[in-house]
Write a protein that binds this DNA or RNA. Structure first.
Length: 581
RNA sequence: CGGGGCGUAGCGCAGCCCGGUAGCGCGCCUGCUUUGGGAGCAGGAUGUCGCAGGUUCGAAUCCUGCCGCCCCGACCA
């Protein structure tokens, strides 16, 4: 490719609406162009990257035995009504009507359509297992699209769906995908981690996320440096604390804590460790009738140590919380506690609430909590003596750095990640809803055991940039760079020697199968260098009269501080070596 | 959806309070000079000032409504 015939649209300044580094750099490098909130044109330079990501994913999916197809972006509503998701998906699913006023949706995912295919075409157990995938445009009308390709409304996803005859076979299909994902992610050239994830209603451990490590990631990843344990913070279990509750040693005392409503302030004021305080979170669960109207509400008090945070996923699994929960309203808080939030505690309640204690809190003695009176806390609180034992003791909190690893092989560390892939075992959720069956050996219909597997194709380049950039621009891993090598001639139009050497090198690299771009724009050197560093091409060759006199061509990796000189005749072999060919 | 902010040239911004010829930098075009780290000089092109209505002799500027976009919180590839 010659730069003069390509589309290079770099900017010195990033548009002001770009906030994160990947968004800014993709805009500046001319890789994407915003059309509407969360909707982007993939410009030629950006599309090359996306296509390389897709090609790697496609190869690894094919290698793993998955079969590519392409399902419609516009899908009829009736299929979505079969699974109830036409209602359940809510406003995140974009709905449209055709000229006959019939409902359609823009696919946010494709379980319904693929299950419809399976029930029509996979009639016998002999046809199983099957894994169907597509690399397709998705649309999700996010509440808040942001960060460019990181959270777009329109994006490209590889979505695969496996169909098996029984759970054991489905788990084998899942493991095949787990392996294929590792193979693909290894090829991207990014630092990533496969972490255990919350698997929702299905249960079990068959859900993993593939997280690209980046300080700006939206997810917290828990891992154990001395073992292979890794999990999303939503999922990571806080082990039951060792030891038993010490005996009470302090009397109950009400202490003034004016203006100190958060645990950290109270601990500081009273000169005690934060871990001796207990925070009270007031939640509510609602019983609703068939019209969705609230019939009855239950108020709960969740108690966590002052230095711990509530884990909403764990709380959502508590008995009584499965159907959803919310923070209590201020009116509910006042009704039950007699005061507004800030100084709440389990003592001197106005109305009974149901108390759930975190496992850490349950073994504490002589702790501090709010007095249910503004500007006062109570110290020396003890279970059993001052209040009844909690109704329920459970793991309610996020793990923190230094906690023991659930596998018992060390202590946990935390880093941040960007979720690029997610695989999980679905069971018969969709096959049952859509009555999708095949005939087993006995001629009896059985529901398909399903799994689904996603990779955010257009999110991946953004994650790659978040992880790999410097003050000059993007640093692509070679596998997904828009071009592997750029040739930058000095005075291409002026010097016959430079032009001849450059054209020869360009032809040789092309013949060697290298994805090379020749910058024949004849710009000034500084702006060419700046452009390619911004765009992030991993290898740069500079051809100039200066070097040619010595028979040399200059090489610089994007990550090198200084350029080095190569013998002109050895350049192609050198580049092939760098690219591992 | 709740809270905050912004819409003026392709991009970054000033002008708005206090109404009176629409500006600056980058980019773009032409010419000359330059040519190993975002060149210099000279000349030039580009605007429904987000949209609609109102006030006024006169609106980018004041008023009303609408639209779009971004940021912060609950979700997800």
């Amino acid at each position: 490719m010659r730069a003069s015939q390509f589309f290079i649209a770099t900017l010195k300044e990033a548009p002001s609406d770009a906030e994160v580094v990947s968004h800014k750099l993709m805009m500046r490098a001319g890789m994407i162009k915003r059309l509407s909130a969360g909707v982007y044109t993939y410009m030629p330079m950006g599309l090359r990257v996306i296509n390389k990501v897709a090609a790697i994913v496609r190869e690894e999916m094919n290698r793993a035995g998955a079969i590519e197809l392409s399902m419609p972006v516009v899908q009829p509503a009736d299929l979505w009504q079969e699974t109830g998701r036409f209602e359940k998906m809510g406003p995140e699913m974009l709905r449209i009507k055709d000229r006959h006023d019939r409902d359609f949706v823009l696919q946010p995912t494709s379980e319904e359509v693929v299950t419809d295919i399976a029930r029509q075409d996979f009639k016998s157990y002999k046809q199983l297992p099957k894994n169907l995938y597509q690399i397709q445009t998705k649309f999700r009308d996010e509440r808040r699209p942001r960060f460019g390709l990181m959270r777009g409304r329109e994006f490209v996803m590889k979505d695969a769906y496996s169909f098996d005859r029984d759970p054991a076979a489905a788990q084998a299909s899942y493991q095949t995908m787990a392996k294929a994902y590792r193979a693909a992610f290894d090829r991207f050239g990014l630092r990533y981690r496969a972490v255990a994830a919350d698997s929702g209603a299905i249960g079990g451990d068959l859900s993993e996320e593939f997280q690209v490590i980046a300080a700006t990631g939206e997810d917290a990843i828990i891992y154990c440096p001395t073992s292979d344990y890794a999990a999303n913070i939503e999922k990571a279990e806080a082990l039951a604390p060792q030891g038993t509750r010490p005996a009470a040693s302090q009397p109950l005392a009400k202490v003034p804590t004016p203006g100190k409503s958060v645990c950290a302030d109270v601990a500081q004021l009273l000169q005690v460790p934060l871990a001796t305080t207990v925070k009270s979170l007031v939640l509510a669960t609602d019983e609703v009738d068939e019209h969705g109207a609230i019939v009855k509400s239950q108020v709960w008090l969740l108690m966590l140590r002052g230095d711990h945070d509530m884990n909403e996923v764990k709380v959502g699994k508590l008995p009584g919380f499965e159907k959803g929960f919310r923070f209590a309203t201020e009116a509910e808080v006042v009704e039950h506690f007699g005061t507004k939030p800030g100084y709440l505690g389990p003592l001197n309640l106005k109305q009974p609430v149901r108390i759930v204690a975190d496992r850490e809190v349950a073994i504490m003695a002589d702790w501090i909590c709010g007095a249910n009176e503004a500007d006062f806390h109570i110290t020396g609180v003890n279970w059993g003596r001052d209040l009844p034992e909690p109704e329920l003791v459970a793991d309610l909190r996020n793990v923190v750095e230094g906690d023991s690893s659930p596998d018992g092989k060390g202590v946990l560390a935390i880093e941040r990640g960007i979720e690029i892939g997610h695989i999980f075992y679905l069971g018969t959720k969709y096959s049952k809803a859509m009555n999708a069956t095949f005939l087993d050996e006995g001629g009896k219909p059985q529901f398909f055991e399903m799994g689904c597997y996603g990779i955010g194709i257009t999110r991946l380049p953004a994650a790659a940039i978040e992880q790999n950039h410097d003050d000059k621009g993007i640093i692509w891993p070679a596998a997904i760079a828009p071009f592997e090598v750029v040739i930058v001639p000095m005075g291409y139009a002026k010097s016959a020697d430079v032009k001849a050497a450059t054209d020869k090198l360009y032809a040789e690299l092309q013949a060697a199968g290298v994805d090379v771009i020749l910058d024949d724009r004849d710009e000034r050197p500084g702006s060419m260098f700046a452009d390619w560093e911004l765009i992030g091409v991993p290898h740069r060759l500079v051809v100039g009269e200066r070097g040619l006199k010595e028979g040399k061509i200059e090489y610089k990796a994007r990550t090198d501080a200084e350029a080095s000189l190569l013998d002109a005749g050895a350049v192609v072999a050198h580049v092939q070596g760098l690219l591992g060919r």
